[in-house]
Structure formats: C-alpha cells, structure tokens
Simulated assay, not measured.
Amino acid sequence: MAADDAPVRSETKIAFDTKIAVLLRDDLETWQRLNVTAFLVSGLGTAVPEVIGEPYEDADSTGYLPMLRQPVLVFEGAKETLTSAHTKALSRSLVTAVFTSDLFGTGNDRDNRAAVRAVGRDALDLVGLAVYGPRNAVDKVLKGARMHP
C-alpha cells in the first residue's frame, strides 16, 4: 500500500456539547434491552436531524446509510430511576422517547402509539427512555442511573 493510500486518522478528539443517552430498566432480559435501545434511538434523527452524520462509503465506493454522529451512552436503573428521569427530562424540555412495558405486546407502530396514548404520563410503565440535549442537562436527568455493563 502506498503512503497516500493509508487511512486518514484524526489525532483530535471531537467533543460534543450535547449527549444522547438511553436509560433502561435494570430488570429487562437481554433481548428486551437490545430491542428497546434500537426503538428508542430510531426516532432521534427525525426529531433532531443534526444528530445524523454523513453517509458512509467503503473503499469500493459502496454507499451505506448515515448514522448518529455521536456516541449513544446506555445506562440502567430501577423503575423509580426511570420515573424520576422521565419527569426531569420533560421538565427540562429535552427531546425524549419512551418505551413502555405494553409495547412488548404490540407488533406495529400504530398499536405502539395507541398503547402509549392509553396511559397518562405519570402512570406509564417505563422500561426505557432516550433523551437528547445539552450534556449537563442530560447528566442531571440521569442522576442515580449507572452505566450499562
């Protein structure tokens, strides 16, 4: 490989003033954790398009979809931690996505939305929550949660 074919590596870390975080209830099965995380982050780019990076391309010019431009940090906590985080996120007007236990029994977006709509905000049985916003505000929302192992 010629010197000018070598991969370009940046020596400068990119620091973000925002944070994307997912908070999962600590009693979920592994498949549920993965499913909930995927669903929660899926809506972020539609609500906040600037979190989406540029499309990817390999050395053969094969194109791939763009992804989130910054890491997603995953946390876990007890049911009470999710309830508290939900209240704090809404009070700070952070971009928020929710996943309730009822959604494990549905099979499509229409039924998911109906299941959430059927329950009042303070009675939602939250199993997952995604938040996006200024780093310090997200940190305050996640107080009491721990990094997912």
Rank of each mutant, 00 (worst) to 15 (best):
P49F: 02
Y64G: 03
V48H: 06
Y64H: 12
E57G: 05
E50T: 11
D60A: 09
P55H: 05
E50Y: 04
T81C: 10
V48A: 13
V48I: 14
G63E: 10
P66A: 14
P71Y: 03
A78Y: 11
V72T: 13
S61D: 08
V48P: 01
S61F: 07
V72G: 01
I52R: 03
E57N: 05
D58S: 07
P71V: 04
P66C: 06
A59K: 14
Y56N: 08
M67K: 12
A78W: 12
E50G: 04
R69C: 10
T62Y: 11
Y64A: 05
I52M: 15
Y64D: 02
G77N: 01
T62D: 09
Y56G: 07
A78Q: 14
D60M: 07
L68T: 08
V72K: 01
A59R: 15
M67E: 10
G77Q: 01
P66G: 07
S61C: 03
K79W: 06
L68K: 04
M67R: 13
M67Q: 13
I52V: 15
T62G: 02
Q70T: 02
E54Q: 12
E50K: 11
L73C: 08
L68A: 07
P66N: 08
R69D: 12
F75W: 01
D60R: 11
A59I: 09
P55G: 04
Q70F: 02
L68W: 13
D58M: 05
T81R: 00
E76V: 06
S61W: 07
P71R: 07
R69M: 06
Y56V: 03
K79D: 12
V48M: 10
S61K: 13
T81A: 11
Y64N: 03
G53I: 03
D60W: 13
L68V: 11
G63Q: 11
E54M: 09
E50Q: 14
S61N: 09
D58N: 15
M67S: 12
L73G: 04
M67V: 14
L65S: 13
R69S: 14
R69P: 02
L73A: 13
G77K: 00
V72S: 02
P71C: 05
P66M: 06
V48Q: 15
A47V: 10
L65I: 06
Y64K: 05
A47Q: 13
T81D: 09
T81F: 00
V51D: 07
P66Q: 10
V74W: 00
G53Y: 05
E80S: 13
A47I: 08
G53C: 06
T62M: 07
G77V: 01
G77S: 05
G63R: 14
E76P: 00
E57K: 14
K79A: 14
P49C: 05
G63P: 05
P49A: 04
Y64S: 05
I52A: 05
E54V: 09
K79C: 04
V51N: 07
V74G: 00
T62C: 03
P71N: 08
V48L: 12
A47G: 11
P66V: 03
E57H: 03
T81Q: 04
L68S: 04
F75H: 00
Y56H: 12
T81W: 00
